[in-house]
Write a protein that binds this DNA or RNA. Structure first.
Length: 580
RNA sequence: CGGGGCGUGGCUCAGCCUGGUAGAGCGUCAGCUUUGGGAGCUGAAUGUCGCGAGUUCAAAUCUCGCCGCCCCGACCA
């Protein structure tokens, strides 16, 4: 197959568009792959769509190979099923809602658990029909608070979502494992290095999950991991043996004692002179409005509350920090002087590091005062003890004791073991061999297809453009006649392109009457793995130049053996992304 | 939603502070020259200065409101 540049729409940009901040977003625009319609809304241009289709094809092949069945569900959904699952309110913030002409409300699907479970509830009745795994590649709509970074976080994006249904928990684990393996293969075939990390289940619910992360400085997630690779977790979920400095455990007085701390509003203020209370000797008291009611969260002064862990502890994701007025209403003081000593009637969730801590300092619930000699077990009525702190780099892995590293990453896939949350809510039951009705045990599995594409660019871009892994490159080879007015060059270039095309190679011919520099720059931007340039100079010696975009290596090849050599190089490129 | 920034030919931006003629580079079109890493010359087209009010003899410029976009936080593939 031959594409001719002159007949395409490949609007490359010489300058970096002002709207793009991160390299992959800049390259998507500069290489003429996408154009923006509005915030988080993008048109895929021909080259961008070609690359996207390549990712989709890999995903399809691996899902099919893993035994999943492709279907296609509606993006427009009735709100009833969302009420039925309970997510009409739980996920309300991301739901796009539209009205039809009669004023009836509809939902634009942000995901499809409800639809697929409703389907299964109607169609699967017997254990003999299990297991089944359904997937689709489809548009999702999410009313993101802040769309960002091009395709990375869009209001409308393409996702591969799969849903497994099993008769037993063990069988569900096997389905989960199959998807996990398929994901590993998919990302490798897309040329991506990924890290599978333990993850928080969030609003999805369920038992446990793994995220597939592409390490990148521009990623929106942070991952904690050991060098040996025996542990990797999203920072939201990560645990360690605890902070580097132990929590004080020696009582300093028989009862809490108030002391004046005028102007002190932060942990740092209190840690500084004249008070000199080290941060790890302080109790940080945070107030959240959980489903409109105040709840206290306590962590050590030098720790950072992990909101995902807090959500798990209090059993709700619907919370926000309390306003100063709400803090005053709940505790009688403004942030900066808050504490949990003697507080009654409010839920208090405390981090495990504070358990049995003694000789601590915390706010007195009186503006400008703090309490010292606080012994947690004696002075605080803690509702629940949980791991609430965010792990820090350098802390010890729970099992091996090895130091944890932290780095940023892009989440490209997420697999969940859901259990029966949706099947029970939506009544997806089957008749088991023992004659009893049981809910299907579910799993769900997502890949951000458009995000994966951008992650590949983020990982493989350089200052000149995109160095596509051949498996997702819009075309495999670009051929150009350096001087479009030199008839012999043009003829030879076309011959090579025809021969490659005959050998099932996807070729882009830059047939524009542009100067060499322009075509070279554009070739680097668009990033075909192999570039063939035919020019008078080398042609006079019977040669053409072949360049590998990935390594930058160039070689001169005899005209007669050029096609053979290109195919050999191409085979090597494919080998680099092949999974056996 | 809170905080910050920006909106001027297709793109990148200047002009705004201190009101009066709307500009540059790139791109586009025509012609000539040039042809191995974003060429040169000549000529040309392209603007409701985001929208709406207000102040003023006069508004891209000052004021107010709205809209859009980008960045930082919460959400997620």
């Amino acid at each position: 197959m031959i594409l001719r540049w002159s007949e395409q729409l490949i609007p490359t940009l010489r300058e970096v568009p002002a709207e793009a901040e991160i390299p992959s977003h800049q390259l998507l625009l500069r290489a003429g792959l996408i154009r923006k319609l509005g915030a988080g809304l993008y048109t895929f241009l021909p080259m961008g769509l070609r690359a996207l289709r390549k990712v989709e094809r890999i995903v399809r092949e691996e899902m099919d190979r893993a035994g999943a069945l492709e279907i296609l569900m509606p993006a427009l959904q009735p709100p009833e099923i969302w009420r039925q699952s309970g997510r009409y309110t739980a996920a309300a913030e991301v739901l796009f809602k539209v009205a039809d002409r009669a004023g009836r409300e509809w939902v634009l699907g942000p995901t499809h658990e409800e639809v697929v479970t409703a389907l299964v509830a109607g169609e699967i009745n017997s254990y003999r029909q299990l297991p089944r795994n359904f997937y689709q590649i489809q548009v999702k709509f999410r009313d993101e608070i802040r769309p960002r970074f091009g395709l990375m976080r869009a209001k409308e994006f393409i996702m591969k979502d799969a849903y497994s249904f099993d008769a037993t928990d063990e069988a569900a684990s096997e389905s989960y494992r199959k998807m996990y393996d398929a994901y590993t293969r998919i990302f490798r075939r897309c040329g991506l290095r990924t890290l599978a990390v333990e993850a928080d289940t969030g609003v999805m619910g369920g038992k446990f999950s793994h995220e597939f992360m592409v390490p990148a400085e521009t990623g929106e997630n942070e991952v904690a991991y050991t060098e040996a690779g025996d542990y990797a977790a999203n920072l939201e979920k990560a645990v360690s043996r605890g902070p580097m400095t132990p929590t004080p455990a020696v009582s300093t007085g028989p009862a809490p004692e108030s002391f004046a701390t005028p102007g002190v509003l932060t942990i740092e203020d209190l840690a500084a002179a004249p008070y000199n209370v080290a941060a790890h000797r302080q109790i940080k008291t945070l107030v959240f409005m959980v489903e409109s009611k105040p709840v206290l969260a306590l962590v050590r002064g030098d720790d950072v509350l992990n909101e995902a862990k807090f959500a798990a502890a209090c059993g709700s994701a619907l919370f926000r920090p309390a306003t100063p007025e709400e803090c005053r209403a709940a505790l009688g003081a403004l942030p900066g002087s808050l504490g949990a000593v003697s507080v009654k009637g409010l839920p208090i969730y405390a981090d495990l590091q504070l358990r049995s801590a003694r000789g601590m300092v915390t706010g007195a619930n009186e503006d400008g005062f703090h309490l010292r000699h606080v012994d947690v077990d004696r002075d605080l009525a803690v509702t629940g003890w949980h791991d609430l702190r965010t792990v820090k780099a350098g802390e010890a892995h729970v099992e091996s004791g090895a130091p944890l590293f932290i780095r940023r990453a892009i989440e490209v896939g997420h697999v969940f073991k859901l259990g029966t949350k949706y099947s029970e809510a939506m009544n997806a039951r089957f008749l088991d061999a023992d004659g009893k009705q049981k809910p299907c045990v579910m799993g769900c599995y997502g890949i951000g297809v458009t995000r994966t594409l951008q992650a590949a660019i983020e990982q493989w871009g350089d200052e000149f453009g995109i160095r596509w892994p051949v498996s997702v490159a819009p075309v495999e080879v670009e051929v150009m006649a350096i001087n479009a007015q030199h008839a012999d060059s043009v003829a030879r270039a076309n011959e090579i392109a025809e021969a490659l095309s005959a050998a099932q190679v996807e070729v882009l011919v830059d047939d524009r009457d542009e100067r060499a520099g322009v075509k070279f720059k554009d070739a680097d931007l668009v990033g075909a793995p192999i570039r063939v340039s035919v020019g008078e100079r080398s042609l006079s010696k019977g040669q053409v130049e072949v360049k590998l975009r990935r390594t930058g290596a160039t070689e001169l090849v005899e005209l007669g053996s050029a096609v053979e050599r290109i195919r050999a190089l191409l085979a090597e490129e494919w080998n680099a992304v092949t999974v056996s």
